[in-house]
Design a protein around this nucleic acid. Structure first.
Lengths: 244, 244
DNA sequence: CGCTGGATGTCGCAG
DNA sequence: CTGCGACGTCCAGCG
């Protein structure tokens, strides 16, 4: 086993015994560090669902906010995980290094048992930044409100997030003939689900407004799938192609 | 800077210079290792959307399948990422360690620039296991097929994944009066979206079958939200409480 | 490849 | 806290 402490706020152990690994994890979490373990382990989860994972080499990350992530060499998603808000606990038990992360509401537990820890590290993290993302549905909405003719000539937005019994409508307005128009905005190509959503809003408004009020539903998205297009036609809804 | 090579298939560097860090990353990826970097960096993403992230301490994981994950001290989701299938590239440029992950279809790139690498590691991963998950929708389906009376006395399943113009129905069968019954199964409490889905299937079957065929739609889930319950009533659909 | 729907989805926001 | 919908959702399965 070897250990290292750098000025950069990193503490590591390579091939530690179980007690040393557990101590590093416990100390690290106590100091709000981000803790990483790599080695041979089994994983057991029980909560909303349940799962078991036999022995294998995995990378386990424990965050000071209570999140836990178990990663293998494949996939973007962790093979097992626990949400933020958990309590982490790590101890050496009969030569094994055992990490437990528990939460309530829902009651969930994740247990990782390391037969061998190949590497353990505690990182002091300072990250003042939050990322700025461009190209979201909010951007699309901004674009439509700034230039309503992108949807159609004579379209006038009157409200955003207008409440209906079926939920809030993205954009609510009227066309040049005074008909009510409901927009459902999607930042990317859409399937049948988005059409169903729009249809629920249109239906709710038709019932809510005067019986003589005409309500048009318009899906605004880069494109639609075939099934979605058929569903639009069937429900008498419209589609306007527009990209964020 | 210090380095370490253990018999357990782990290579690490603490506080390496840019060239050493880049070499470890490149060698590790070349050997199908899982690579982790920790240090002060900026992150730029461009693809389906776009984002920028100023300087901060983050943990970057590069997987041999092409996935890249950038984690801060908070959250279950990476603050930035790249999907499996990317090409990773790491080089030392003007004292900085720069990681680039690129893919096509869609064209996306993630660039992480480390001003300082506090720690770098390459892990040899061997993981033969895939996790067994209990409590999924598939389990609920199994339960219903084994004991159809859980849905209602006299219910007879005839097919699963039966195709309709609106998509495949979870379970298709008939009740004791010979009426067609469509089940939509959900492993957890459901909202309006699931009702919309069921409604589409029922509508498609009503159009597809003989005009005289009666079609019942039944949502099978642990529970429903208020809005979903209202929508069920409005569409003349039913609900049976059942937990996986 | 594209389409579809599930997921221990996660996350953020409003009531 | 629950409900609801967005998300660079991810992911498997199928045509």
């Amino acid at each position: 086993m070897s250990s290292d402490e750098s000025p950069a706020g990193v503490r590591t152990l390579t091939a530690p015994d179980a007690a040393s690994a557990a101590a590093l994890v416990t100390d690290g979490l106590g100091a709000d560090a981000l803790v990483a373990l790599f080695g041979r382990c089994t994983v057991d989860y029980e909560g909303r669902a349940a799962s078991e994972l036999g022995p294998g080499d995995r990378h386990v990350m424990l965050k000071p906010d209570g999140a836990a992530l178990v990663h293998t060499d494949e996939g973007q998603k962790p093979v097992n995980w626990q949400s933020p808000g958990c309590e982490h606990d790590c101890r050496a038990t009969e030569g094994a290094t055992v990490v437990e992360s528990r939460r309530t509401n829902p009651e969930e537990s994740l247990v990782v048992r390391f037969s061998t820890v190949a590497h353990a590290a505690a990182f002091d993290v300072s990250d003042p930044e939050t990322p700025e993302v461009i190209g979201t549905e909010a951007d699309l909405k901004r674009r439509v409100l700034e230039e309503p003719s992108l949807v159609e000539d004579g379209f006038t937005p009157l409200a955003t997030e207008r409440k209906t019994p079926a939920g809030a409508v993205d954009v609510y307005g009227e066309d040049d003939a005074g008909r009510t128009v409901v927009l459902e905005l999607k930042r990317r190509r859409v399937g049948p689900d988005a059409v169903g959503q729009l249809d629920r809003y249109v239906g709710a408004l038709r019932r809510d407004l005067h019986a003589d009020a005409e309500v048009r539903g318009v899906l605004v998205a880069p494109s639609v799938t075939g099934r979605a297009r058929a569903l639009l036609a069937e429900r008498g809804l419209e589609f306007v192609p527009l990209t964020p």
